[in-house]
Write a protein that binds this DNA or RNA. Sequence first.
DNA 1: GCGGTGACGCGGC
DNA 2: AGCCGCGCCACCG
Length: 98
Amino acid sequence: MNEELHERVRELVAAVPPGKVATYGDIAALAGASTPRLVGRVLSEDGLDLPWHRILRANGTPAPHLARRQLELLRAEGVLADGKKVNLRTYRWRSNSG
DNA sequence: GCGGTGACGCGGC
DNA sequence: AGCCGCGCCACCG
């Protein structure tokens, strides 16, 4: 595995500011990963020391097994969710042109 | 090398 | 609103 890529992901995830969120696809693209799945894999290994809760799926929903946790932590940062979905148009880190 | 798996994402029905 | 298939790729048995 490319440890550089691994670091890139960590850096990017850590770069997401409080009150904002990013998608796996965004992180993957910025990190240069060929697939967003790699992002999830990295977080599953070292996400413990990262603001992993700021990473959402492309539709604004968190991962099912972390959904409750995700939304709870985001809520503490001011990121409100509609049920299980977060309005990326409002909270997405950069690229929120719309 | 092969098949199954998974913090994903898009298209089709 | 749910279900399926494909692409993608490292990890595991």
